[in-house]
Design a protein around this nucleic acid. Sequence first.
DNA 1: AGGCAAAGTGTGTGCGTTAACATCCTTCGG
DNA 2: CCGAAGGATGTTAACGCACACACTTTGCCT
Lengths: 354, 354
Amino acid sequence: MSMSEPAPRPAIMHDVARLAGVSHQTVSRVLNNHPNVREATRERVQQAIRQLNYRPNALARGLVTRRSRTIGVISFDTRLFGPASTLLGVEHAARAAGYAVTISSLANLDATSVRSAVAALAGQPVDGAIVIAPREGAAQGLRDLRPGLPLVAVEAGYSGETPVVSVDQFSGARLATEHLLSLGHRTVWHIAGPADWLEARERIEGWRASLADSGAAAPPLLRGDWSPESGYRAGLDLADNPEVTAVFAANDQMALGVMHAFYERDLRVPADISIVGFDNIPESEFLTPSLTTVHQDFDEVGRRGLKLLVGIMEGDSERASQPERVPATLVARQSSAPPRPSRGRRAVRRRRGS
Amino acid sequence: MSMSEPAPRPAIMHDVARLAGVSHQTVSRVLNNHPNVREATRERVQQAIRQLNYRPNALARGLVTRRSRTIGVISFDTRLFGPASTLLGVEHAARAAGYAVTISSLANLDATSVRSAVAALAGQPVDGAIVIAPREGAAQGLRDLRPGLPLVAVEAGYSGETPVVSVDQFSGARLATEHLLSLGHRTVWHIAGPADWLEARERIEGWRASLADSGAAAPPLLRGDWSPESGYRAGLDLADNPEVTAVFAANDQMALGVMHAFYERDLRVPADISIVGFDNIPESEFLTPSLTTVHQDFDEVGRRGLKLLVGIMEGDSERASQPERVPATLVARQSSAPPRPSRGRRAVRRRRGS
DNA sequence: AGGCAAAGTGTGTGCGTTAACATCCTTCGG
DNA sequence: CCGAAGGATGTTAACGCACACACTTTGCCT
């Protein structure tokens, strides 16, 4: 027995074949569950595989089959709850379907960042890709770089020729607005997301449609950027306006900022003003007061997106160009209540200077 | 011109070579920035590459170089802010270093889930892996399945033979506890994470050490499971105890639950009780009141983890078996304040039944 | 002008696998 | 008891690339 174990390189198919006393092709048949292998031979091969701790080389396999059994995911800021949940749904569904997942996330939404992420993914050996980014740019860029690559967009609005799976933002916004109106509020103010986000647009449309249906006047629109800070700033504006009794924020984070602003202005939620958010982040339930919001089933969106992609990749023809819509649901909690019986709000008291 | 464009299969190196009038090897040299190529030739080749929209086949390249330029990441619940941020830090650093990232996330922490995620990653062609999971099981499983695979653990506690990068939990917990003591509180109660999480243990130790240093009595430990619900339950217990004036929750989510419980019991934060959390999730700043917490730089942890892994992969020898520690910092906000001058807390009033 | 190193380029081989084809061994019916 | 069908196995050839090596050209020194 010599001292030098010369770096035990991983076993290859040929090693297994030799140990089992068969040809490498028979090993390949066992690995791929080919029927025409005698049971005794199969056993012997599997024994050899275990003994050598052999695992097939995915690169070599992919080279000859021309399929990597890997999908790519391009995602915007995976720290956010929505994209993160969707990614998780995609990943678990992918594993169940026998696909690995390679990610490429955008640092931010400017064109450079999108290009970098898209280029990185385009260089990867992926059989298909899912775009979790609210910009058409990502899907289009990938299409340019890798023509013919199966593609599905999720959590995106309208998206050109790419099949889309997303939550029904329009109906979700209607649910939120109608909930507040049905509590007796005369109208509902809305803090929207950035103008170039399709989700933001659809939520505005749902809100407007709902107000129109009830004959309520549509107050001026406020703009945020999804961040608590922006909600806070909008909240300060609203706090100064005694007309405001109900606010629908386009996401929970902005709702959080609004509540903070109201707290600083000594306005009570929901006694003085009701608030409804959107997303149902895990924190919503335990805010003070707990936040009424619209639940989005991100996991389901991820699962459906992957299912659709697999369908396209495995040749089920490119049907289903219809956008798939996952319904949103209202979760009523403490932050929404009927308005005070007396018209208008009690006078705004200032607790802080200025 | 015939009707049938017979599926324009992607160009291969040979196509580029023919178009440029060189051998495939020269194309290869251009792609890999080999110095000995005449400038005119290089231009011609690059022109041909553009014209044919050629991109090298990563599978074929990996097969011959025996390196895939891909790393794997095993992560626990990527919806949580910490793991999600770390993953993002890893991913961006990886892209900058020329590596792709394949993920495999755990649905939960039971052995089956860990095995499934580890097995999925072990089958992938990765040059190395980062484990963002608080269980040694994941790293060990990967080590068993793929001996010799370069491995780094992040956001994990002590982890056997695997190099570790993580935030200094012990010092972070000291910061939180000392902050409350320095405000004048006699002692600090602690709501810990699950007993089998190393982060939870280290935070307990930091808390205990800090109390001991100040000669403060250590109150009984409360246990949570990181969720707002568990913090809420612990908060209800604490609310009934008039001795309690300062609470250090092991993460922000539990702190949120605690604040909600106090609100229901009509206790004011920070007037009646001070609270400090851990993590500094984006919502903390805009809670009502805003939450004093300990900031963890997850991004930095991800970056450092990747840097360490690249060092190992590229043969810088396996130095740095020392755990790398990223410092934690205290972020003082509204939820912590000196105790009321009168000893003890005002009587607990109940607002709700029972 | 000759020679010789270096720059520039081409040829052949193998990475580990699957697919196509060839071959051998059963078995079963007439 | 022989022949054919088909089950079981082996042989050979790609897949697209990089590496080792061989070869041709260029430039420079003597």
